[in-house]
Design a protein around this nucleic acid. Sequence first.
DNA 1: CTGTTAGCGCTTTCAA
DNA 2: TTGAAAGCGCTAACAG
Lengths: 333, 333
Amino acid sequence: MTLDEIAAATGFSRTTVRFVVNGQAERYRIKAKTREQIERFISEHGIVIDRTARSLRLKRSDAVGLVLPDLANPFFAHLTAALEDLCHAAGLVLLTTSSHDDPAGEARAVARLLERGVDGMVIAPCSPMTAIPMTGGRKSCAVVIADRAFPGQPYPMVVTDNEAVGRRLADILLSERGDAVFLAASRWLPSIEERIRGFLAACAAHRLDDAESRIFSSNTDDVAAGKHLMEEVITRRGGPPAAFVCSSLLVFEGALQAIGAQTGRLPSDLLLGTFDHHPLLDFLPNRVVSARQDEVAIAAAIFHSLTEQMRGKPAHAERLVIDGRIWSNGHPL
Amino acid sequence: MTLDEIAAATGFSRTTVRFVVNGQAERYRIKAKTREQIERFISEHGIVIDRTARSLRLKRSDAVGLVLPDLANPFFAHLTAALEDLCHAAGLVLLTTSSHDDPAGEARAVARLLERGVDGMVIAPCSPMTAIPMTGGRKSCAVVIADRAFPGQPYPMVVTDNEAVGRRLADILLSERGDAVFLAASRWLPSIEERIRGFLAACAAHRLDDAESRIFSSNTDDVAAGKHLMEEVITRRGGPPAAFVCSSLLVFEGALQAIGAQTGRLPSDLLLGTFDHHPLLDFLPNRVVSARQDEVAIAAAIFHSLTEQMRGKPAHAERLVIDGRIWSNGHPL
DNA sequence: CTGTTAGCGCTTTCAA
DNA sequence: TTGAAAGCGCTAACAG
């Protein structure tokens, strides 16, 4: 049922029907009897206002796009869930797209969202985009960069305070074991580089002068990379370290596999550290310290910045930093 | 840049420009020079065709909606990722919405998608909906029910073969330990009921006549429920079982917590079984057997049925069953 | 081969 | 209080 159809069926005009449907009956002093008739008709026959037509006319879609490297990554899944809740509460829908860490796919995704006329876009870029082509849209589109703050973007960025968290995590390991290495995947990511800086700072604070040699990094973020990195650690140091940090759970899994393959099972005093968190970590036989991003707070910051832009505030290239949290044995530290 | 603007700027008509833009230049034998001129202009100035207007005209949005109970649930996150890939490859966008297991939220989500004119909808219902109000839309909308096959829906349903998987899982536990209990959350879900049936069938095959008393169930699916259920098991049976299955990882975590609280740490010969899988399970000190849904195959079946409907094939209430897989120690069984 | 026209369902503006 | 008209950018049908 369209507004026109209802108008025709009830004998009133488009305008009158629309006022009732949009809850503006009061404001335009629609006669009570008129309103009742229309409302009764609608409750009997139902109505679905066509937001496609509405969008075309208003040049506003009440939709926001989300461009992620990978939805299967729990961090992004949680971020999506949190953002979605905020959007829905505000009457917006969320269009999600994954780029699978492919810059071309990312560009395509952005273009597709632009075609759809989204009012805003949240992007976790998979590469240092030269420039997101927001130009070309018929209307301005709010943009917020999430999680991956490649330099040079003219948009607000919301990121975790990776360096601080990395430092705290490393500090715990070094304090408890006096030794630690860092297994880093995707070193080209700003967030990873920041975590490494935090690790190095902790090493410096503990007066370790071989900090650089404690960093092992690869370009891909997967289990195989973690395994390979840990094998390298074992080879270079003649055995497993007393403690290690991994830049992601995938790397963590690979590292555990490598140690398991080497020593049969995990040395019981091996102290494990990892970015990203999963509840099952708490049931591993070893002590695990994990750094966790605050998806809800990140989503809130993103949404705030986005809605401000959508309300007309011009976008700065500001950097909004959200605190990460360290967990150990199922409890925040 | 709109088609009209380009037409005006290049001096050709809307139609001519559109033929070029839509790649139909060949078909309509647009003069090569004309095409080149238009293409050059576009490559210089860019173009974003407005799919909002297109949708309005064509009554087709090239969008499909996805209604899930909870995106943060890894199964649904993986399903979403898989579906998204299929959609994008077919030039469709995916609108995701979570209902948080709230029937009212679910109804709202469906209505919102209908307003948006989605061509199709994938729903993992959170309750036995009396009827999804597909009526009222201006055009028919393809529908596929995923994962939760409440009876009575007139749409195709894609589900895992829960009973068979549940039976295989229970069979492994009973064969290896001769004892097992089932901790089930959300017993009102068809999928859970099916898993329980599989468990009971395995018990019967192992000539256990107390099968019913091995089922412990709750209405919520969370860690607290799992803990509570395991406490009940321990109380009723005077100690932890030799093996148990949980209907979800959340319940699994709760159960481990309860046993840990009771016995200090996990008895080393305790055999763990769970639906849902996570790679970290492989690093637990105990042997873990887990049943895993095949999200990619499920997504493929959903997408196939959906696109068939979108091409005009009327929807049957058929039931498409996808095999689940059992994993143990990081390998499929 | 290219141009013109009508209209998708909505909102806005102006009239009555 | 209510109605009528115009137009968002696109596509389809038809006319040159």
